[in-house]
Amino acid sequence: MTHTPTLSTLEAVNSALQQATPLTQPIAFQHSLKVQNLLSNWAAGAADKSIATSQLLAFGLNTETWGELLQLQQAVQQRLQQQQQNWWRGWAAWAQQCTQIKNANTMSKLVEQEFNLVGQLVQLLSNQATNLATLQENVEVDYGYWVHEKIKARSDSGAAA
């Protein structure tokens, strides 16, 4: 059965569109503001970390500090490798599904199957981007925390001595 839109349906859609349109601008503005805020927060954080790093360098780096820095670097490499492995596994599974021929008795099923593949592709890309951003944020927060902990420990031991 073909569904013909009735007048009331069209009116409802039209009314919904009219209601949504005036909101579009403020929402777009809010989105750009959010991005701006996050970027300026990130810049402030980066500046704070570089100042803290200079402070730590002024104390001089001992073997323990070097060791911990190396450990941090290795941990990041490991996480990246793990992410890459997961990405390859995801792509391999997707590629395999693309090559499989599935039965589709109806046109709607066929369309659904095709869009499932597109959906999975978008999901893979989205996961990859999110995981990478998460790791980057993790490194920034952990490094900042580590530097501040080091400076505090040095200051405390300096004060005690």
């Binding site: 954080g45 450990q71 941090l72 996480r79 927060v141 952990d142």
Partner: peptide, 25 residues
């Protein structure tokens, strides 16, 4: 970790209290 307190708490929760990269973090 972030200028806004609520952002900092969430970042701390995620990256120091759940998923620290090394024992020193």
């Amino acid at each position: 970790s972030a200028p806004l307190a609520e952002d900092a708490y969430e970042q701390n929760a995620l990256y120091i209290c759940m998923n620290p990269l090394t024992p020193s973090t």
